[in-house]
């Protein structure tokens, strides 16, 4: 995949006019720890994400990066420390969890579209049942976002009839239909063929250009370099290094980061 990271580098000028980071805090993680049984998977995570920030998390597999972002919408439960999303603390209170989940969009490596529903139904389901939006309005919103990810003509098909890249774009549209304030991406391009990676990254870049707060777990270093305003490197369940993309890639400080970067960029 290392080669493709160069090939899929963004080939157009990025419009940065809306990409300002505000002072408002979107996500605040303090002293967060998580165990899988006896295995200490996340250790003393401290992370503050401001509104409008675009953060890329990278690191070797098993380093806890997916677990970290899955904690942010409580697909995984943390055992110690504090996570505050949009001013609401994540506790075992189900009402808070559902509220945060409806504010935080998430895209998965394997898309997790609902195969028994059409593309349009996939996109309108949560707005209708969670937000109580009238069906007609929800369908209009869904078509708007399907146009945005450039597949409105597929609206009445089923996910199984679409290519991987199209499915991932539907997944992004599905999340956007909930009008989330934060988007999480969990290796959105890892399961895609090389020629489909670009179409998904383009969609994500557009989203960034509109000022969406984003946290992406990805190995697309071209994307990180051009879109992110902070890159976080994780290893063994902890944040090893974080910096702006230029200094992160050109002048990594920790030995572990240097090794990782040399391995994935070293071709």
């Amino acid at each position: 995949m290392a080669e493709s990271t160069h090939e899929t580098m963004v080939d157009r000028e990025i419009d940065r006019s809306h990409m300002q980071v505000s002072d408002e805090v979107a996500i605040q993680i303090t002293e967060m720890n998580k165990w899988y049984g006896a295995f200490h998977v996340l250790r003393d995570i401290n992370l503050t994400v401001n509104r409008g920030e675009r953060i890329v998390i990278c690191g070797p597999s098993g380093s806890g990066k997916s677990t970290l972002i899955r904690c942010i919408n409580r697909l995984e439960e943390h055992q110690a420390g504090q996570i505050i999303v949009d001013g609401t603390e994540l506790t075992s209170d189900l009402k808070n969890i559902d509220k945060i989940r409806s504010e935080v969009g998430m895209c998965f490596q394997h898309f997790n579209l609902f195969p028994h529903l059409t593309i349009l139904e996939n996109c309108t389901l949560a707005p209708i049942w969670v937000r109580k939006t009238p069906r007609k309005e929800a369908e209009e919103t869904a078509m708007h976002f399907l146009e945005k990810v450039k597949i409105p003509e597929q609206a009445l098909k089923y996910p199984g009839q679409l290519s991987g890249g199209q499915q991932q774009r539907v997944a992004i549209a599905r999340s956007l239909c909930m009008k989330p304030r934060i988007m999480l991406f969990d290796e959105p391009t890892s399961a895609l063929d090389p020629e489909m990676i670009k179409e998904v990254l383009d969609t994500m870049i557009e989203l960034a250009e509109e000022g969406m707060t984003m946290i992406c777990v990805t190995h697309e270093m071209g994307f990180a370099r051009q879109v992110a305003n902070r890159v976080i490197f994780m290893d063994a369940g902890q944040i090893v290094e974080q910096n702006e993309p230029e200094p992160f890639f050109n002048n990594p400080q920790s030995d572990r980061t240097k090794l990782f970067l040399s391995q994935i960029l070293g071709h």
Partner: peptide, 22 residues
């Protein structure tokens, strides 16, 4: 697949909604 539960959860559907709809 476990992803179906996670997909439903991540959209904010509650337990009964995700059971009934997904």
């Amino acid at each position: 697949p476990k992803g179906q539960y996670e997909g439903a959860d991540s959209l904010g559907l509650d337990y009964w909604q995700s059971q009934r709809l997904i």
